[in-house]
Design a protein around this nucleic acid. Structure first.
Lengths: 136, 136
DNA sequence: ATGATGCATAAGGAATCGTTTATCAAACAG
DNA sequence: CTGTTTGATAAACGATTCCTTATGCATCAT
């Protein structure tokens, strides 16, 4: 008699696994002012307790926890447990890796989408831009 | 007797002006898979017609127009009108500027938020992290 | 002028994000 | 063991995003 539970989504994209070379995920993380402030703070302090970070930024503890989860998933920060505290710091190595891949993309040296678009497959000529010339 | 019009928002943040040094805006732009594909495509083709871009990426024309607006606002792409067509290309100079400011932030050389947090103003000591030491 | 083309914008809905207020669970202190 | 502290998670809501369809508005061709 009971309705099936109103389970809304299968998975809130924020929790889905992040493919390794994905650039959208880290950029999306950095595209939020609060998370950018977190990064800024971490850039100035080798390692910070989560609760201290929350105080310093004026962010509620659950909210900071959420943001840290996103930043962890997209490899912007790392956290380690110390007793009942959690210390977090920037994952500078991973960040530089992201930036490097982005530079490659900007320079036309990297494809983020191996499968060509439907139109490209069809070979749509589109006047005089049939899939324009590649940069030298 | 009539209700005031249900005008929902004052301004859809996506349309608000972007402060010059803002980093969140360009990152937010790049944090979307479709827009990242646009950037990738533009990186390989000096200049592209909007309609060609839409075909190549399999994006509807109105949607591409919307994405291009965001990318323009956050200084990722530029567009110029040629007759009734619009050609767009990467704003590489601006992009490198964004990346440079981000590197500065990562290295602790840049503050995105001049006004200290409420807790910081109060001088909250927070155990042994009263506003931790700055990196050497 | 009339029609066709290229792009921008409005309108609308589903999904997601950002936040707050409860809990929950684990680690430590007494 | 009881209670406290620290952080993660759940629930719930408004605000935004992302997309489609429809419409507007120039520009070019006939």
């Amino acid at each position: 008699m009971l309705n099936s539970p109103p389970r809304r989504h299968v998975l809130p994209r924020a929790l889905a696994a992040v493919p390794d070379g994905d650039l959208a995920a880290p950029f999306e993380s950095l595209g939020n002012p609060t998370r950018l402030r977190i990064v800024e703070r971490l850039a100035a302090t080798r390692e910070v307790r989560v609760s201290d970070l929350a105080l310093q930024l004026g962010v509620s503890q659950p909210r900071l926890s959420w943001h840290l989860r996103l930043l962890r998933r997209s490899r912007i920060v790392t956290t380690r447990r110390e007793g009942r505290e959690v210390l977090c710091r920037l994952d500078r190595e991973a960040i530089l890796d992201h930036l490097g891949r982005f530079r490659a993309l900007i320079d036309g040296r990297l494809s983020i989408d191996p499968t060509p678009s439907p139109a490209a497959v069809l070979g749509v000529p589109t006047r005089e831009n049939p899939l324009p010339e590649v940069l030298p």
